[in-house]
Amino acid sequence: MAEKTHAGRFFEDYSVGDEIVHAVPRTVTEGDRAVYTALYPTRFALYSSDAFARKSGLLRSPIEDVAAFHVVFGKTVPDISLNAVANLGYAEGRFLLPVYPGDTLTATSEVIGLRETSNGKSGVVWVRSTGLNQRGETVLSYCRWVMVRKRDEGAPAPAVVVPDLAASVAATDLVVPAGLDFADYDFALAGERWRWGDYEIGEQIDHVDRVTIEEAEHMLATRLWQNTAKVHFDKTARDGGQRLIYGGHIISLARALSFNGLANAQMIAAINAGAHANPCFAGDTVGAWSEILDKADTTNPGIGALRVRLVATRSGAAPFELRGDDGKYRPEVLLDLDLWVLIPK
């Protein structure tokens, strides 16, 4: 009898150059926006109000950039990280087109690197993933690397290929959505008066607010994106019997918490780099802080770009402390994310 089920790919199933078309297109709806808002304390005006978005030159309010990222990421999981030990990091992420309710997203990935880990039980897989809409237009792309279990620990290691990824997306390569215009921006409705010129390179911002993660909420969020990774749902899939919080859940929490201090950072233009520094579990209370790394002009009216380090931490962490004396991430640091965001000038 032919085998009809699929246990997912293991490390030895990948080859550099593999092109993977991921299954199950996903049409984004207003329901996704509603559930996203219920899950995270997000309040960015551009994603909350059609009227605000139209005044800013868009067709209507798009879904949040991170939500679009989650949809595309979720498509890739059955082929890339179903048997993952951990998702390790991101680079070269670019948001190229807004995603609106009614758009249908699909995803493809290319394997761009492989390296077996020193214990021979797993390996790191690097992929470049692309999200497309129903017109075949690329809405976002990013690289990520993930540690994947081996099916057979005795399987020979592949040739090591580690891709040379850019340290950051150049400001000149940022894509500002067509028509986006903050020349007549309403700061009162947006919630804060701070604009591009009010932020200084090196400035640090404690976003103050905190959220305790519940088991049911993180599993609901992960299912929303059709992310099927076993470690998020099956407590027997990890040593210790705890479900691992999907790293994207922490990204969304941190981004939502950053509203308090960065309310006018309306759109994410790029993910320069990112690392899930330590695992997170239900019951953890998450806070966030940011550091302004750089500033840049754009060619669109009234719009500037800020490069922001967004850090999510576990409760009890002192703000602005990232690494210990040994150079490693402090144990209370959950996420270290380097972003370009668009903000009114």
Rank of each mutant, 00 (worst) to 15 (best):
M1E: 11
A2L: 08
E12P: 05
Y14W: 08
D18A: 12
E19N: 07
I20H: 06
V21D: 12
V21Q: 08
H22Q: 04
A23F: 11
T29R: 12
E30A: 10
D32G: 00
A34V: 09
Y36W: 15
T42H: 09
S48H: 14
A51F: 12
A53P: 13
S56Y: 04
G57H: 06
L58R: 00
L59P: 03
R60C: 15
E64M: 11
E64W: 05
A67H: 15
V71L: 09
G74D: 06
V77Y: 01
I80G: 07
L82V: 11
V85E: 06
V85R: 00
L88I: 15
L88R: 07
L96P: 08
L97T: 08
L97I: 04
P101M: 05
T104C: 05
T106H: 12
T106A: 07
A107C: 14
S109A: 11
R115T: 11
G120D: 08
S122T: 00
V124R: 02
V127G: 12
C143N: 11
M147F: 03
M147T: 01
M147Y: 04
R149H: 12
A157Q: 07
P158M: 02
P158G: 09
V161R: 09
P163G: 02
L165T: 02
L165P: 04
L165K: 06
A166H: 14
A166Q: 13
A167G: 14
A170S: 15
L174A: 05
V175N: 11
V176C: 14
A178P: 05
D181N: 12
D181A: 09
F182S: 01
D184S: 11
Y185P: 00
F187C: 00
A188N: 14
G191S: 09
G191W: 10
E192W: 05
R193Q: 15
W194V: 07
W194H: 11
R195N: 12
D198T: 05
Y199I: 03
I201T: 10
Q204A: 10
I205E: 05
H207T: 06
V208S: 13
D209N: 07
T212C: 02
I213T: 05
A216H: 14
R223P: 03
R223M: 13
V231G: 03
F233R: 02
F233N: 03
Q242V: 13
R243K: 12
G248H: 10
H249Q: 04
L257E: 02
S258K: 01
S258A: 13
F259H: 13
G261I: 07
A263V: 08
A263L: 01
A269T: 00
I271H: 08
H276V: 03
A277H: 01
N278E: 12
C280M: 06
F281N: 02
G283M: 00
V286L: 04
G287S: 06
A288L: 11
A288E: 07
I292A: 00
I292V: 15
I292T: 01
A296I: 05
D297H: 13
T299E: 13
G304N: 09
L306K: 09
L306P: 08
R309D: 04
A312S: 07
T313R: 08
S315V: 07
A317M: 03
P319I: 05
F320G: 06
R323T: 14
G324L: 08
G324V: 10
D325P: 02
R330H: 08
L337Q: 06
D338T: 00
L339A: 04
V341Y: 02
I343T: 08
I343Y: 04
